[in-house]
Design a protein around this nucleic acid. Sequence first.
DNA 1: ATTACAGTTTACAGCGCTGTACATTGGTCC
DNA 2: GGACCAATGTACAGCGCTGTAAACTGTAAT
Lengths: 338, 338
Amino acid sequence: MKQVRLADVAELAGVSMKTVSNVVHDYPHVAPQLRKSVQEAIDQLGYKPNLTARRLATGKTGMIALAMPEIDHPYFSELSRHIAEGATRRGYRVIIEQTLSDVDAEHAVLKDREAGLVDGVIFHPVRMNTLEIAKLRRDTPLVLLGESTTPVTTDHVMIDNVSAAVDSVKHLLSLGSRRIAFLGVVEHDITGSTDQRLLGYQQGLVGAGIALNPDLVFPVPDFSPEASAEAVTAALSRGVDFDGVVCRDDKFAIGALRGLTAAGVKVPDDVAVVGWDNTALGSYTTPTLTSIAPDKLRLAEVALELLAERINGYQGIGRHRVVPHSLAVRHSAPAPGS
Amino acid sequence: MKQVRLADVAELAGVSMKTVSNVVHDYPHVAPQLRKSVQEAIDQLGYKPNLTARRLATGKTGMIALAMPEIDHPYFSELSRHIAEGATRRGYRVIIEQTLSDVDAEHAVLKDREAGLVDGVIFHPVRMNTLEIAKLRRDTPLVLLGESTTPVTTDHVMIDNVSAAVDSVKHLLSLGSRRIAFLGVVEHDITGSTDQRLLGYQQGLVGAGIALNPDLVFPVPDFSPEASAEAVTAALSRGVDFDGVVCRDDKFAIGALRGLTAAGVKVPDDVAVVGWDNTALGSYTTPTLTSIAPDKLRLAEVALELLAERINGYQGIGRHRVVPHSLAVRHSAPAPGS
DNA sequence: ATTACAGTTTACAGCGCTGTACATTGGTCC
DNA sequence: GGACCAATGTACAGCGCTGTAAACTGTAAT
């Protein structure tokens, strides 16, 4: 039951350890028949290289950490999947770290209490601000995701939230909506996302010559669909008149759908709804959800690419990459004229 | 930029490496003032223990692998979250491995091409059968999840699918349903889940003295909601008369909801629907979905517990643990009399 | 003063692998 | 035939840490 070591194979094959190592690694300059006999020894003993030892010797771990708020949120789980696949393709394993949007947990991600665990980190911060990130940042290669403002020294991948929000508004306008609401502004929301999306919402309206109306910006107490359903219900009962909603989030959009439907308001005929993130959830609602679709695959690929470059020694200033988005058009805000 | 080593700290503090190590590990028998001065040296140099080296020396990696078909499937992402949290609580880090239901990938999980990476593996197989698992299984501690039949030698955690299906049927019966359908039997489905759920479905009906009707077992070409929506639509247009549906899966239930709604059939009034897995999806549908709710938290905890015992040397025969389930009652099949 | 002993601290040999520097071999070319 | 060279193969010193055994304390008991 004892672990078979390189030395054991070397002894059996009657060669040096290094030669066995070379065979394991398919090093080109090994004589064919020697390679064969070494391989036989490997097979016979059932030798498996010990990764930990290899890592200590090479200094590379072949692992990256993926730190996000919650892995069971559809947006994050979908993104994780792409990152996991891309990482595998690049020969990395992924270790997951859930911060649960906890400040301490986020600090821990950057603080590196221990070294040599991973070669790099992909991190989607929620509660940390630029300053803290810049201050805590260690030597481990790091790529940031999401909309928080980030230190110029750090790589960052995101979509253009402002222009995406503008796109949402434009789509609603093209459907004939004129009184377009924004759902939801969450109290104490520390993510920059809401700000940027709200900004784009305003920009879209102003660009179309429509006056802003503060009553059309719906606050929501928390991030649940329930809360946003209530927010919509409350707006309706206040008599707020609207015919389109840009939602901060698919979950909010789902709440909106529910609140509207419950009040007998028809979606999309009376009110068209656009969500955000194009999570799988949107395919499961009734009606199905039109939603801003960040190119998650691209996001994952770019993040991995930047990280790989850092791991391979790139030392330059932070790169800030904007990844494309589109609008996934479904029934809650269909294509114009359909 | 060079990594600070234990030896560096030792030199600065004027003590042996081992003493520094003892301080790092809070070993009790270190004189207070020595401990203090060593700690100062640690802080001054910003020393961080190198985990890889520690692992090589101790032989423990402090990591477990979590291998599942797809991490962005709601059931798996929710389960992953619990496992990740439980693992963290127990001092383990989790590395994720997606098999994408691919045979080779599943083989790779068990095959251990490399050693010393993780202390143990939690694996939810889909395509491998008992025999293959038993054959490939290596020395790494392993806990299996899911409904495939598993080798007696291996630990396994699951819910009682048969009795859960019976519960579904009973619930529908309590609502007055009598012509209860089962959706969906997928061609070439290699998971044991469907079989067991179908078995429970039959058992529930027979137990209530209701004759089985093959027409009420709806086949579905694949695992998508679209396919199951079509299957329901097809059944309706065949003139199949039913007033309740037990679904193999929440995704199927969502498809059923869609197909029924599209055909003008009222849920739950005309047809009550029960899903399976109680994924978050079920809260987002209209109507919300009643669903078999495996105790995912418990599932995660038990799996981790069994794995921890294996890691700590337990060598006994495979333990097969059944974890409780319940029925999450929502609108698609409400509580009787509500 | 001597012994005993619990409490501290140290020296050092690995953990299993790889990189480096060097040794060996057998051609090839004049 | 000797020089040169590319292709192969080897020896061995680490990578940074921990476990073990042994070596010191100082104090209490004899």
